[in-house]
Write a protein that binds this DNA or RNA. Structure first.
Lengths: 79, 79
DNA sequence: ATATAAAGTGTACTATATAGCACTTTTTAA
DNA sequence: TTAAAAAGTGCTATATAGTACACTTTATAT
C-alpha cells in the first residue's frame, strides 16, 4: 500500500464509522493537528501514531508480501 | 500486527533474504543506526522509514481489518 | 579457542513529528 | 442561501526520530 492509499483507507474507514477527525483524535490519543496533517497528505506519522489511529478504527498495521495476488491492482475492493 | 510482530517480520524476512542490517540499510536508504534501533525493539520508525525497509524486502505496509479470521492468532504461518 | 562478521549500544547533533492555538476554507443541513 | 460543523493551514514550541561515529557484545565460522 502506497502512502496515498493508506491515507485513503484511514479516511474512508473513519467516514464509514461516522467519526470526525476531532473524535478520532480524542479516542486515539493522537493530537488533532497530527491527524489533520496525516489525512491531508502532509504527514509522515510514526508507527505508534498509525497504530493508535488504526486501533480505534478496527484496523491494524501489517506487513504483507508484495504481489501476493495480481488481483486488486486497481485499488478496488479496498477495505 | 502488534509492534513486536512487525519487528519479527522484518527480521525474519531479512534473514530469509540473507541480507545483513548493513546491506539493508544501504539498499533502503535508511540509516544503519535507525534500522538497528528498530530491530532491537527500541525504535518508533516513521511510516516512510518502514516503507523504505519494506520495499527492499519485498514487503508492503498495509492496513487490514482486525480479526478478519480467527486463524493465525498464535502467530504461526507468518510471512 | 579464536578470528571475523554481524548485531547492539552510548553519546550527541540535526531534522522533523507531535501538538496546541487561532484562523480560513470547505462541506453539510436547514 | 446561510448557519453550523467539519476539515485544512500558518505559526510555533517541544519532544523525539534519524543519523554518524566509535565502541561493545554476540554469532558464525575455521
Amino acid at each position: 500500500m502506497h502512502h496515498e492509499k493508506l491515507i485513503k483507507t484511514i479516511k474512508e474507514r473513519r467516514d464509514v464509522m461516522q467519526v470526525t477527525q476531532e473524535t478520532l483524535a480524542e479516542l486515539s490519543g493522537v493530537g488533532l493537528r497530527t491527524l489533520k496533517q496525516f489525512e491531508s497528505g502532509k504527514g509522515n506519522p510514526t508507527l505508534i501514531t498509525l497504530q493508535k489511529l488504526s486501533d480505534v478504527l478496527g484496523l491494524e498495521v501489517c506487513l504483507q508480501l508484495k504481489n501476493i495476488t495480481k488481483a486488486n491492482e486497481t485499488g478496488e475492493n479496498t477495505i
